[in-house]
């Protein structure tokens, strides 16, 4: 801090408006950091005609905003004041967790998360509460569709209320889509696998056998969405899986549980089946990478 302070002459000329603009600026700059000079200038201004007007404005503003706090009243008094206002602590932006939650997007915040919990807990409740022996096969049949539904609810004009604003930001496109998909998978994969582990086997494949198909169907949905949009893509992949599993099980003879378990075993059990799913996943990922530009402006009206 220098020892320089505003002279009385300078203050007088500033208050009556005769001080040249550059000098007025440098004086104002000094006032920002020097309380004594600021008080002297305020005193001088208050004695002029502008002081009366300022007092009136202040009163009118405070009168018009009876419920606001002092901080917000001063903010509405002048924009420059609100700029220099003390910054409030801002935990919701800085923290890493909040940012991850934000990135997760609409699905994880919306109705999808309760739906996942319902599927997981519902399966366990059915198995132990109602002695329903088909809980594991049913869970395995439904589980791969869960992340697909999550993807459908995560991105695009139909699912994201903020989409129109989001689409004009640099985050839009493949990256935001993958971030949200990752959030969907991070929630659904462990939860449903855990639920599956708690259920009696009933001749169905292992609880973790759906992981690779679930991932593959999700990637296939993303890859297909580049051509058709998310609604159609997820309807095709999710609906396709359900038809492939449920249709033969429903039409064939024998106990439903056994048929469903057989059907699932055919799709999920053994190295060749899992290998095929893995190959399909790699294929879809490659397609996504080569067509990454298609996601930049996906929705056209």
């Amino acid at each position: 801090m220098t020892g320089w302070h505003t002279s009385d002459d300078l203050v007088t000329r500033y208050t009556d408006g005769s001080l040249p603009e550059p000098d007025a600026w440098s004086l104002e700059k000094h006032l920002e950091s020097c309380g004594d000079c600021a008080a002297r200038v305020s005193q001088a201004v208050r004695e002029t005609a502008a002081g009366v007007t300022l007092a009136e404005v202040r009163e009118a503003v405070l009168g018009a905003a009876p419920t606001t706090s002092p901080a917000s009243a001063s903010a509405s008094l002048s924009r420059s004041q609100s700029r220099s206002r003390r910054r409030l602590p801002f935990p919701s932006v800085g923290s890493r967790t909040a940012r991850v939650l934000w990135a997760a997007g609409p699905a994880v915040r919306g109705a999808w998360l309760p739906a996942v919990l319902l599927v997981a807990f519902g399966a366990v409740a059915l198995a132990y509460g109602a002695d329903f022996d088909a809980a594991r096969p049913l869970l395995l049949a439904v589980a791969p569709v869960v992340p697909v539904v999550g993807v459908a609810l995560s991105y695009g004009a139909h699912a994201d209320p903020l989409h129109e604003i989001t689409a004009a930001t640099p985050s839009a496109g493949l990256r935001l889509m993958l971030t949200r998909t990752a959030a969907v998978l991070a929630v659904s994969l462990p939860l449903l696998t855990l639920a599956g582990l708690l259920l009696p086997a009933s001749g169905a494949p292992a609880a973790a056998a759906w992981l690779l198909p679930g991932l593959t169907l999700t990637l296939a949905s993303l890859a297909l969405a580049g051509y058709t949009g998310f609604r159609t893509a997820t309807a095709v992949t999710g609906g396709g899986w359900l038809c492939a599993v449920l249709a033969p099980a429903l039409t064939a003879r024998g106990g439903l549980t056994a048929r469903l378990a057989d059907q699932l075993s055919a799709y999920l059990d053994g190295a060749p089946a899992q290998g095929a799913w893995a190959a399909a996943a790699v294929l879809c990922a490659a397609l996504l990478a080569t067509r990454r530009r298609a996601y930049d402006r996906l929705e056209r009206r």
Binding site: V93, G94, W102, L162, I165, S171, A172
Partner: peptide
């Protein structure tokens, strides 16, 4: 959230 989408510095 929009500031985050616009890749503003934290």
């Amino acid at each position: 959230y929009v500031a985050w989408l616009k890749e503003m510095r934290t």
